[in-house]
Amino acid sequence: MSSKIKEVFAEIKAQKRKALITYLVSGDPDSKTTLNIMHRMVEEGADIIELGIPFSDPMAEGVSIQRGHERALENGTSLNDSFDLVRKFRLTNNYTPIVFMGYMNTFESLGADLFMQQASESELDGILIVDMPPEESSDFSIAAKKANIDIIRLIAPTTSPSRAKKICSQCSGYVYYISVKGITGAGNMDSVDVQNKVGELRQHTDLPIAIGFGIKDAASASSVMGVADGIVAGSVFVDLIGEGDNIIDRVGAKTKELSEVLN
């Protein structure tokens, strides 16, 4: 069975554009609003949605997304709630891939097998566990492969070419290139360095490459889109959600702005 993520990237490539991958935290500020935002993001041009799974200690996140996790935990959002959210989303959308992005400890609270069972039932497409490098991932890798769930992996500016090759060989769906040495929402992206590194990365993989962590607006998106198959934007949406007024329209407008750059 071919993965939905693979199909979506193939389609976008045929249309000669880049994928827009949008991130938001599940349950931020509440599950109903998250669901509404997801649909609106798709209407305005999001191709894939990364749903952050809230965790008490989101070590790789900048302040914006940390606050998103805190807001989602304040109303008790659990991993099961996030699976419910995907099931509800699928009632009217069976084509937009959804990826769970989060931390090992929450994913493990269900165990790999039960997690994948729920993932299959809710038609989840991929997982990205931030603190699970290939060396630490055996249970989830095996279970994900069996369940036909993509495992998206991170490559960083610090990753050596030989290590990048190894990581790509254990990755499916897309490769997530971290554009900065830093946390999510960082503002120090060096677009020339990103272009060079992503160029090198092409030698190791045929998978689509998405670039994220430092993309916040049309300018930063367009500075690196030339070498990418897709870009990921997260903090910019989570900030708007945190500001609290007219969330859905403002997130929609930002999605549209980014999507137009990538077309």
Partner: peptide
């Protein structure tokens, strides 16, 4: 692999692994 039995290891984001 930095393990004491099943414990320990290196559960960090990729940037820090190198």
């Amino acid at each position: 692999k930095g393990r004491f039995g099943i414990y320990g290891g290196r559960y960090v984001a990729e940037t820090l692994v190198p």
